[in-house]
Every structure is written in structure tokens, then in C-alpha cells.
Design a protein around this nucleic acid. Structure first.
Lengths: 152, 152
DNA sequence: ACACTTCCCTAGTAATTCGATAGGAAAACT
DNA sequence: AGTTTTCCTATCGAATTACTAGGGAAGTGT
């Protein structure tokens, strides 16, 4: 169950824009340097975010990228879906499109439950929450449990 | 956020063994046919499950694979970790090994919270639960919400 | 002893992802 | 006009994923 580099980079780039304010615009090179992301790779990701309506761009002298909407109205899930496709997929397809047979039949509701639990977090937490380091209490209490930081 | 074919196949193979009973042993070919898994690919996965102590094997005439422990003592998470590595990873590394800077700093506790929420399900649900189609109430209530089945 | 079965190991292939690079056209600023 | 920056295309190599092929090792039945 892995979160791809694309998704991670997309969210970090969006956070950089959120932190710069809703008005300001940053150029790709600046974001790449601030977050240590390969800058030509990032350009491709920012292109996806633009086509997905998460950011808007302007070229030329004082050009760059900025968020298309206020940071508190963009969920982390929105960014990931635009940059990287479905939030949760099994073998590349979304859970509802799966079909299992025999003793594996109850695997489908299990994946659905996992997805619901992931959505509950990433669909609720916005760029503003993360950029200002003020996560919702519900998320914070999950992250504060020392058990959650242990390895296996 | 994708669950790999290896993980999906590993769990389904283990479920087939769980359904066959703790004593019975199935050969790779039988499991592959029952679940529609490429059988040589499955052999590799079963090898990992054996090395990880999830199943035991016997060769020859009446050989095959069976679970190393009772089905109600093997969590889905155990199977996935042995077959496919860490349950949740970002760009291939486990959340605690990540480090973020600037406005992305709170991304780390966010991934930790996501992982905790995934663990809560996959660490609690066992092969026996799924094979007998009796998921814990907590999981069932998540999966029963019609909203959880909608697509985006 | 012999054949047959089944696991088990190594190697290899095709497609995708990740990360980097390069060249150049289109748009906006000074 | 000239500079800046997005934007488009097209690579390339290394790594990973999903899968295939062949054959050797260990066990069973006749």
C-alpha cells in the first residue's frame, strides 16, 4: 500500500503554494528548490494540477503558479486524485470494479472499509490545515498515539 | 495509494488455505485455478509466505501448502507485510523515516494518521473473519455506508 | 528401482514508474 | 526587442512490477 512520488510531490507543491498565500504566485523552480523536488518532474505534475483545476498558472516575467481556490477549500484527497488517479486502488482498479469469488468474497467490503477510513482523513484535511500545522483534533489524536509511530 | 497485485494475490491465496481448513493442504496449481491467479507467479508469492512463516509446505505426491497457524490468529496485515513489505509507504519508505521541511512539516503526522487508520482495520481482521464472511462489526459498519461505495 | 508429483530456484521479458535532460514554441512582462 | 517563465514533446536509463520458462530437489506410490 504505497503512496507514489507523484502524489507526495503534488501535495508538497500545493502546500508551498498554500503557505505563500492565495494571492501570491510561485514559479516551478522556486517550489522545486524549497521542497527538494526534481524541477522538470515537478513541471509535469504542476501541469496535471492545472488541468485538474487545482492551480492556475501565468507565464512570463512575473508568472508562476497559484491555487485556483482558497487553501481551506482544497482537500489533500483532491490534490492526490488529480495528480495520481484514484485515492485507493487494488491492482490499478478501484474497489467497486473488483470481483472476488469463493472464500475471497468478503475481501471487497474489506477494501471498501479501508478506503472509507483513508477518505475520512484525506477528504477532510485541507491544504490550509497542513500548511498552518493545525490538523483537526480527530486526526491529531490518531497521530499522537505513540503506537502509531512504531515500525511494523 | 495502491494495493499491489502481490498483496492482493497473497491474501486471496491465504484465504483459500483458510477455507480449506487448518489440516488440509492445497497445491499451488489448485489455488491458482480457484482464484484465477497466474500459477507460476503465485508460486513465487507462496515462497515468500513460507519464508515469512505464514504457510508451511510439503513437496511430492500429496504435498502442497497449508497455514502455519490457525486462521483466526493471522491478520490480513501479516500476510501483506510478508508478501509485499511495509503496509503503508510513501515513495517506498515507511512514514517514520520521512522528513519534510517548511509548510510540509505537518505532512508527516498526517501520513502517520493514515497508516494508523489502515492498521486499525487490517491488523484486526483475520483470515478467519474474511474466509467465513464474518467481518467485525466495526469494519462492517464502515463498509455498509452506501457513501463508501460511490466512486470519487 | 522407477516414475510421477509437487515444491523450489534462477533467469529472463514486457510494461510501467521514477527521475533527469533537452529543445523549443507560446505567452507575458520590462 | 529581449527576457522570463510556462508549456509541450521526446527522449533516456535505472528500478520496480507483473509475469513466464525451464529445470533441479524432495517427496510419494507402484
Amino acid at each position: 500500500m504505497r503512496i507514489s512520488a507523484r502524489a507526495d510531490y503534488a501535495v508538497r507543491a500545493a502546500l508551498e503554494l498554500a503557505a505563500a498565500g492565495d494571492e501570491a504566485s510561485l514559479k516551478a523552480e522556486t517550489i522545486a528548490a524549497a521542497q527538494g523536488i526534481p524541477h522538470k518532474f515537478l513541471e509535469g505534475i504542476l501541469g496535471d494540477l492545472r488541468r485538474g483545476g487545482v492551480v492556475v498558472s501565468r507565464r512570463g516575467g512575473k508568472g508562476g503558479y497559484r491555487l485556483a481556490r482558497p487553501a481551506d477549500s482544497i482537500a489533500i484527497a483532491d490534490v492526490i486524485r488529480v495528480a495520481d488517479g484514484p485515492l485507493v486502488s487494488v491492482r490499478g482498479v478501484r474497489p467497486p470494479e473488483l470481483s472476488y469469488c469463493g472464500p475471497a468474497q468478503s475481501l471487497l467490503p474489506l477494501w471498501i472499509a479501508v478506503r472509507a477510513n483513508v477518505r475520512k482523513i484525506l477528504g477532510e484535511v485541507t491544504l490550509a490545515h497542513v500548511a498552518t500545522a493545525k490538523l483537526p483534533d480527530e486526526v491529531l489524536s490518531l497521530a499522537e498515539d505513540p503506537e502509531a509511530w512504531t515500525n511494523p
